[in-house]
């Protein structure tokens, strides 16, 4: 499978979009932080096999996030103190 700039960017967008659906604050923030970090770390990769490998891992992560968001939201709790604060400020 060819990994072009477009497919990788679309993977990134999908990862971010799915992670934002997480109801649990800590998992959501970690996922967003970690996805950005991983893409930053690997943005200078040039070796095509490595890029392919990272792309595959990213896809696995995306599937995992979709599954875990579903499970997590089934048993969701109320928001944390700081989430409430933010909404009050807005």
């Amino acid at each position: 499978m060819a990994c072009t700039r477009e497919t990788i960017l679309s993977l990134y967008r999908n990862l971010i979009r799915e992670s934002k659906k997480w109801s649990a604050y800590n998992y959501r923030m970690y996922a967003l932080r970690k996805i950005r970090h991983e893409f930053q770390q690997n943005k200078l990769l040039t070796d095509p096999t490595k890029i392919e490998e990272c792309y595959r891992q990213g896809h696995e992560a995306l599937e995992m996030i979709i599954r875990q968001v579903t499970i997590g939201n089934l048993y969701g709790t109320g928001p944390l103190v700081i989430e409430k604060q933010k909404t009050n400020v807005q």
């Binding site: 800590n26 709790t77 109320g78 928001p79 944390l80 103190v81 700081i82 989430e83 409430k84 604060q85």
Partner: peptide
């Protein structure tokens, strides 16, 4: 009651 949590939000861990 637990699920909704306290009115001002669940505590930080």
């Amino acid at each position: 009651e637990y699920k909704r949590g306290p009115a001002d939000g669940r505590p930080l861990y």
